[in-house]
Design a protein around this nucleic acid. Structure first.
Lengths: 212, 212
DNA sequence: ATAATATATGAACCCAGCTTCACCGTCAAT
DNA sequence: ATTGACGGTGAAGCTGGGTTCATATATTAT
């Protein structure tokens, strides 16, 4: 084999083509969702004939799966690494937050797909429904933000972040816990006592002995 | 009209049937996702003929939309109300957390659909891909939990919750912020500085003057 | 140059599944 | 009993789109 150095010209070409197909498919999937993208569309965007795609993948589903697996690998790898670097735990957490942010921002299309899988996405219906629900949801979130705002004004709460961001935070935590419960209702129940969740917000994680 | 008291027998029947169709559809959608449920299936589950469904709804999409709108309304209404009740802000937040939990637990199928819309869903492919990704994700989350555990052991962190729950929390917050960014990259950027996010965990929200 | 082989093409095929509609069965009114 | 109206039925039609494969083109070997 002429693999002495690496790959034959043919093989490299094939690999590059594969990547091109992935890129095209990713754009489309991220934009419109798996079911709203046709194989013909992907082929067109990738500048191949449909038949060619089937030289690379058994079928649409397998194309999608390969794509997702490859990308998810990368992200998870980066996250694991981030947690291994840094001297103390605080530094590790900083790394993690930064990495998760940047590795996602780097290519937004993957974000959408990634979140679609781990936390979901709008499989869009030209979206009037979706927008309506979002709007309702947003209204509730605004009200929640007001509660935080008042709490801060009354000096009941410390202003550790903008009220709206606190609202986003609380909703995120609740959603996270609900997911836990959804996946394994027995093991992780959604806490009966709201304080279990609220304490995470209320109490500071950082031991203040070093600070105070 | 004999609406003197309410609805005619006919009308009540129709309404009940409509609800039955909704119930059947909801089960299936929640279980398998919109695209993997056929109208025939819904009809079968609801014990009607397909044709009958089309007496109630223009088409599949409209059935889905009506269903979603109705349910989402309920949830949002309940949440808004929760925020209005309670004397102080702490009480309001408790109400909110409790309501979001219980109104969702009440019927798990809606949860899945609701989260599908606000935060996404697994449109499942008999799920080997999904499971793999979840497993990877879970591994990272475990590593993150270890960081919290060590931090607590070193007394760097207060044990405000179990390490694993802290990991879930941090991931949830990050995801929440990423969503914000995804929706409107200009207005809400994902914080450059990881401390913006971490401070929410690190610093206590509750002003401790009243306690200490 | 020519043959042999590998690769790309896209029109045609085929089917899942949404939708329609001609036909029942039921019940109330006559 | 007969009629009419109305709700329910499900086989058949139709279509979007995933998949195939006979053909065309490019590449390599002789």
């Amino acid at each position: 084999m002429k693999q002495s150095q690496k790959l034959s010209r043919r093989e490299r070409d094939k690999l590059r083509q594969r990547q091109e197909i992935f890129a095209a498919a990713l754009e489309l999937f991220a934009e419109k969702g798996y079911h709203n993208v046709s194989v013909n569309e992907i082929a067109e965007r990738a500048e191949f004939a449909v038949g060619t795609l089937y030289k690379f993948f058994d079928n649409k589903e397998s194309l999608y799966k390969s794509l997702m697996r490859e990308r998810a690998d990368r992200v998870h790898q980066a996250l694991s690494k981030a947690l291994e670097e840094g001297d103390d735990e605080i530094e590790k957490l900083r790394n993690y937050v930064r990495t998760k942010g940047s590795s996602f921002k780097e290519d937004a299309p993957v974000v959408r797909l990634y979140l679609a899988e781990t936390r979901g996405v709008n499989f869009n219906f030209e979206d009037d429904l979706h927008n309506d629900i979002r709007k309702q949801y947003e209204k509730v979130q605004q009200k929640l933000a007001v509660v935080f705002k008042h709490g801060i004004q009354k000096k009941l709460f410390n202003k550790i972040a903008e009220p709206y961001l606190l609202a986003v935070t609380l909703n995120s935590i609740i959603t996270g816990f609900l997911f836990l419960w959804l996946e394994q209702p027995e093991e992780n129940m959604y806490p009966e006592n709201p304080n279990t969740i609220l304490d995470i917000l209320f109490k500071g994680l950082l031991a203040d002995s070093p600070n105070a």
